[in-house]
Design a protein around this nucleic acid. Sequence first.
DNA 1: CACCTCTATTTTGCATTGCAATATAGTAAG
DNA 2: CTTACTATATTGCAATGCAAAATAGAGGTG
Lengths: 110, 110
Amino acid sequence: MITSQMLKGILEGCILAVISQKESYGYEISQKLSEYGFGSISEGTIYPLLLRLEKNSRIIPAYRQSGSGPPRKYYSITPQGAAELESFISGYRELSSAVDRLFSEMEAEK
Amino acid sequence: MITSQMLKGILEGCILAVISQKESYGYEISQKLSEYGFGSISEGTIYPLLLRLEKNSRIIPAYRQSGSGPPRKYYSITPQGAAELESFISGYRELSSAVDRLFSEMEAEK
DNA sequence: CACCTCTATTTTGCATTGCAATATAGTAAG
DNA sequence: CTTACTATATTGCAATGCAAAATAGAGGTG
């Protein structure tokens, strides 16, 4: 199981990654993350995070009507957001490599 | 750069992994993590985390004298700690797979 | 002796961030 | 009218990494 603590610091970058592919809105992003295998990300997590990214100019919103339900708030990534995404990706790869080294040494020990 | 937020929820499992290989103490663990590539983990992070793990019976301490400096507090892993480590590893692999899927789709998009 | 460096642990208080719970609201089916 | 699905926002809480400071032993330098 993916614990909520493990998502910290990862989720923000992943949401930037989703938006960088194609503009999207909160509800759709949470569905996509679920499809990727992140598990169910709650509304209380996703909306405050999007508002924070918007406030820090990592993404910009555009309201559009929807055929089924209230209007959607589509976000697209800004140059600053793209820069942060790149920095997140390199940081994640660094961490991932470190964990892999640790795990493989641990496996060898057995 | 590995941000402090990215370490949340990862670090605890990694410290359990280090201890599972061989009993160790705070100062040595922080050096090992640095060697693995986690960057410099501060004392304010490592010692409270070890005390928490000890309190929850994931590890047990044993004081031993050291030739150079104050006595060391060696920790070894308990059965509960080993169980939590396994659960952490499987959760981490889940998360890692999800991120990989997301990244590879993002790369393909370019 | 005084001072510095390295080893080693502990504690306090703070900042970040995921989440449950709740509120609000539009569309459509029964 | 009720239920269900879509869609966003807010409040308050819990978990955890970290800076900073205190304490302490051993060895070397001036």
